[in-house]
Every structure is written in C-alpha cells, then in structure tokens.
Amino acid sequence: MREGILSPEFERVLNLLGMLGIIGVILGSYVYQFSYRELPCTLCLLQRVAMIGVAIGAAMNVMIGPDTRHYGVCLVSSVFGMVVAIRQSLLHLNPFFDKKTGQPTLEATANPPFGQEVFGLNLYIWSVIIFTVVFLAIGLVQLIRDPSSWPAREPGWLSRLASLGVGLLAIVIASQAILVFMECGFGDCPNDGGWDWWIFRSSA
C-alpha cells in the first residue's frame, strides 16, 4: 500500500487538537449559557450531543490509535449534528415569518433568532460551520493518512497528553450530563430560551 504523508503520531496530535477545539466550543457555550442566563433548547442540546460524538471519535483516535472506524464515529455524529443545525437555521431564516399564525408579516421581529450572536453569527450557524469543518478535516486526513503504518512504540509524551485530554473531555461531558439533568430531568427540555431549570421548579 502506498505510504501517506501523515504519520500516525501526527494524526493523533491532530485528533487531540480537534478534540480540544470541541471541548473549547462546549465550554464557550457554557459561558454564553450562564452569562446571558439562557438555557439551551432541545435542538441546541442535540447539536451538543453530536459535537460530543465527534469529540469521542477523535478521542478514540487519540487513545486507541487512528482507525477508519473511529473516523466513522465522527462522521455519523457530524451528519446528525449538521442536519439538526440546518433545521434550526432554517427555522430562524426568515424574520418576517410569524410562527404563531403561520403567515408572513411586515415586521422583522416576528421570528427573532434564538440566543445570542458570537462574532455576528448565531450559535446554530456556527454549528453548521463547525460540522462542515469536521467533514472537510476528516476527508483531507483520509486523503493523506497512511493506514498501513502503526507505531511500534507510542511516544510517552503523547500517551500522557492523550490521557489528560480525554480525562478533560470526560469531565466536560459529565458536567454537560449533570446540567442537562438539572434542565430537563426526564421530561421535555424548555424551548423558550429562558432560565427555567427543571430542578428548581416548584412542580415537575
């Protein structure tokens, strides 16, 4: 088999960087959630599920070693996330559409965007961009990686970094699970962008 130009060690480093990037995105969403006191909606949480799926696929590449199956986890997750993000973007595409009456209006505030903007774009638009970047990155890596070579001994520094990174990912996902439990319990998640935590409600 023809050798690729991407060594397995470098491939693991790239996956580690990608995984850290997604951790940063999730932590950034925490900052917006708590600073603007806006609970994420159902579609927002589904996009976080997909991003975590991508991060776990990358973490498998980092911990176990690069493998096509691990990239498959990333791809399936990002397809799901992309569908959800496009759906949410289309929901807020037309500000003149009144969702209550189902009719167009002359007011641009009839269908406001959900949540705050980051650098001029809403979070679900950023989500579409992020999942597109994931597609492109995985495609490019598949083009230049070398699936035949496997490191005889993995470098110790990489192993320690991988363990630290995946440990951090586990902490972030666990915190997300606790926050989702506090927000939704076992029922529907609130979709109004308010601050109505399930766990602090007087009735279930």
Binding site: V49, A177, F181, C189
Partner: peptide
C-alpha cells in the same frame, strides 16, 4: 424526551 439518558451514555 431522553436527553439526560443520551448524555449519560456519552
């Protein structure tokens, strides 16, 4: 709605 279950699995 089983969002909590999904997050626990992850």
């Amino acid at each position: 709605d089983m969002m909590t279950a999904a997050m626990l699995l992850l």
